[in-house]
């Protein structure tokens, strides 16, 4: 019998009705952001109304999953359960090719190799049966 998978101990998202389509898409390994049908503004994170015009008319846009590192930090100290066991880790804003900047982790890359402007691509990490996280690695 294979070893039981280790329990995932990092904080999990508290998914709500505004965000559910985003998280459900990630479970399918698809990354979506929102676009206002009235004024065209792209937005991240997911909300029921547009942050430019408050229109509730929203379209979900599937992203290419490609972007560039906008900024980052190599975290050496964090006492939150799950993270204190995985130091150091890289937290970053990735600017998607579609334009929005999203907070994420960079993986599959030595922390000292990370550079601003580096092309990256999404990797989907299924951390629990309900939750998949969009992380990024150097573009291949």
């Amino acid at each position: 019998m294979a070893d039981a998978p280790k329990k995932y101990s990092k904080p999990l998202p508290q998914i709500d009705e505004e965000s559910r389509p985003y998280w459900e898409a990630l479970q399918r390994h698809e990354l979506y952001i929102q676009k206002c049908r009235d004024c065209g503004e792209l937005r991240y994170y997911s909300r029921a109304q547009c942050g430019q015009c408050l229109s509730p008319s929203t379209e979900w846009i599937r992203c290419s999953g490609r972007g560039k590192v906008y900024t980052f930090t190599v975290t050496n100290q964090n006492n939150v359960a799950g993270f204190r066991e995985s130091l150091p880790y890289v937290m970053a804003y990735v600017q998607l090719d579609e334009g929005v900047k999203i907070l994420t982790n960079l993986v599959d890359c030595a922390p000292q190799q990370v550079k601003i402007g580096m092309p990256v691509e999404v990797v989907y990490e299924d951390v629990t049966p309900e939750v998949t996280l969009a992380k990024f690695r150097p573009a291949r």
């Binding site: 709500d16 975290t75 993270f83 907070l103 982790n105 951390v127 992380k135």
Partner: peptide
């Protein structure tokens, strides 16, 4: 509302 998009990544 923003927390669920940030706390999984260890801010």
């Amino acid at each position: 509302p923003s927390d669920q998009y940030e706390v999984p990544f260890g801010p």
